[in-house]
Design a protein around this nucleic acid. Structure first.
Lengths: 351, 351
DNA sequence: AGGTACCGTGGGAGCGCTCCCACTTGTGAT
DNA sequence: ATCACAAGTGGGAGCGCTCCCACGGTACCT
């Protein structure tokens, strides 16, 4: 008597072997059918599929993971506290795109927050245990060690928003430079001349690029760039307020503000209101992200739209390719996989 | 030569066996140390721990799952579209509590949305594959088949918000009845007499209980309940607007409104404003959830606070107990595990 | 006719762990 | 000194799958 066989297993789920017996074929054949191999005759496939249905067979993921050395899961890592995740529409839109795309596959998506030190350590453990086949990294700051850890562990990863122009990881980004340009060009076209810019956190590459776009748009139109019109923000509403206050003090004559995010634009708006400046009569205001805030603001906010959901889709695609390429230890793909998606200016009443 | 050994394994991670060799002990001993068994001498334990550190050993989860028939993961299942998840602070607070509590353990938390039919089917597959040791169910409607599926698969589960008074699953809830009572008592104490109630979706048990609390509070204070003062909502802002409009039409003399959620209160507020009714001068308004909306409303909204984060913590505790109890096939715990937490009325300017 | 090429198939070996039995050694009771 | 028992340990068996080799059969070539 098999003493081990008596170990209480959960609900006696059918195994591959049992399906094979039922279908009158070998284990290998069932495995082939389950995994969609083409090297199975139609008759056999039908027989196996019938057996699978009758027995209600569902593959044991753990066994598969052990034997095949893959987990069929990928993680969406958010190196931020949960709070920010929920506060910013960026993340939820991203998640929506990612979720939609991944549901086309057999892969499982895990959402992991790594805001605190403690969470970081857990994440490191988790990655070291290779519990996922790949990682999606969103909102990574320039000095974050996470990407290095990932490449050291040889875990495929895709980053949203490259950390610099020299990003080595495959990445998906929107055209921040072009977005910045279009905002300024729009304001210039509206006859504005003293255009201020409240930047995002400058350790975020995308924020830098928006500044570059701002500068170049002005120069190309034959205007000089007055550094007093540029004030760094931090993507928060409060930061927007502070920046707006400073700008107003330095250049009371400004007639337009391009904020690096809708949230900062909201902060700026408050200050402009308090100072009695009409929007857009006295000062035109334009944000970035085209989030719900923009639509609901009074007046509705002109904003630069990033196709965030689409970015999420692309990230999954890149990652899956990356994972698939990892199988044969061939070609370290020198063709850098960097996707950049176009932005779109959504004009509303604020400009 | 072992032809299979050549299979390209990921990065040659150290195995239990290698740790054992390094520490000069057997496999079993290392396993005991890793799993914190007390039946190991201190000296041996130290040696093993040293070997683990030197080799950077991390257990292979798949192998462990296969051998031990557990996954060390639990899922938080949200039977709603992502959109609602992000829109309602309820979920993020819940997630915060759950996340905090689970990070005390070795368990992994998965977030699964099951809003669409398609997602439902994926979830069913997922559960059938027993990829998690237990499930946390939030926001389940009365007729949802999910709980049955779970019990059929013998997967431990805990529900937030029982589906009815006869809920069989372990559950964690706040005292909706008491919350409803306290809202009404507060309004009565403020001298209000014609108190309306905009209910939540009545297929949500908690919403029913709030209505019960509303009714009983009025009766106990010697007032009759006028059914024209009760109008069902659906937890949305638009629903709040609609309900408020109807109530005003039916009982223009009402002097207070108890809304079943802050979001609905926000909708009600808009209508009251449009009708020129002052808050709280003409009509006192009170919400439920004490969400961010309540604090930022104009005027700030009195609301009934549920300790959602704490509820999340309790859910994890219950679930872990449930999972642990599942090991020996003993006592089908007849002592129903139902936790009910107290609510708290937060008085602000709207009442 | 024999040879060569597949195709479809069966099943051994092995993935890295846990579980449990059997064994050795140390301790205290007799 | 002898026995009983516990504490600590080693390692076989097995979890359910994938991978790959080997095999028989059919089709096509020379």
């Amino acid at each position: 008597m098999a003493s081990h066989g008596a170990r209480s297993r959960s609900g006696g789920r059918p195994t591959l072997e049992e399906v094979a017996a039922r279908a009158g074929v070998g284990r290998g054949t069932v495995s082939r059918v389950i995994n969609g191999s083409p090297r199975v005759s139609d008759a056999t496939r039908a027989a196996v599929e019938a057996a699978v249905a009758e027995l209600g067979y569902v593959p044991n993921t753990a066994a598969r993971a052990l034997a095949a050395n893959r987990t069929d899961a990928i993680a969406l890592v958010v190196p931020e506290p949960e709070t920010r995740f929920f506060a910013e529409p960026y993340f939820s839109d991203m998640l929506k795109g990612v979720g939609a795309e991944i549901s086309e596959t057999e892969m499982q998506l895990l959402l992991i927050f790594a805001g605190s030190d403690r969470e970081r350590r857990r994440l490191a453990q988790y990655l070291a245990a290779h519990r996922v086949d790949g990682v999606l990294l969103v909102s990574v700051h320039a000095d974050d060690p996470l990407p290095d850890l990932l490449s050291q562990l040889e875990i495929p990863a895709v980053i949203s928003g490259p950390r610099s122009a020299a990003e080595t990881l495959p990445s998906v980004d929107s055209d921040n430079y072009g977005g910045g340009r279009s905002a300024v060009e729009h304001l210039l076209a509206g006859g504005r001349r003293a255009i201020a810019h409240i930047t995002g956190r400058l350790d975020v590459y995308g924020a830098q690029r928006r500044v570059d776009g701002y500068r170049d748009a002005l120069r190309d139109a034959g205007h000089e760039v007055d550094e007093r019109l540029i004030e760094p923000g931090d993507f928060t509403e409060e930061g927007g307020r502070r920046a707006m206050t400073k700008l107003l003090a330095r250049r009371p004559d400004l007639d337009a503000v391009f904020a690096g995010s809708d949230v900062m634009a909201a902060g700026a708006r408050q200050v402009l209101r308090e100072e009695g400046r009409g929007i857009p009569s006295d000062v035109a205001l334009i944000g970035y992200d085209d989030s719900a805030i923009a639509r609901h603001m009074d007046p509705p906010l002109t904003s630069v739209r990033q196709p965030i959901e689409e970015m999420g889709r692309h990230m999954i695609d890149l990652l899956l390719t990356e994972i698939a390429d990892r199988r044969p230890a061939v070609s370290r793909g020198l063709e850098r996989r960097q996707v950049v998606l176009a932005t779109e200016l959504v004009a509303r009443a604020s400009s």
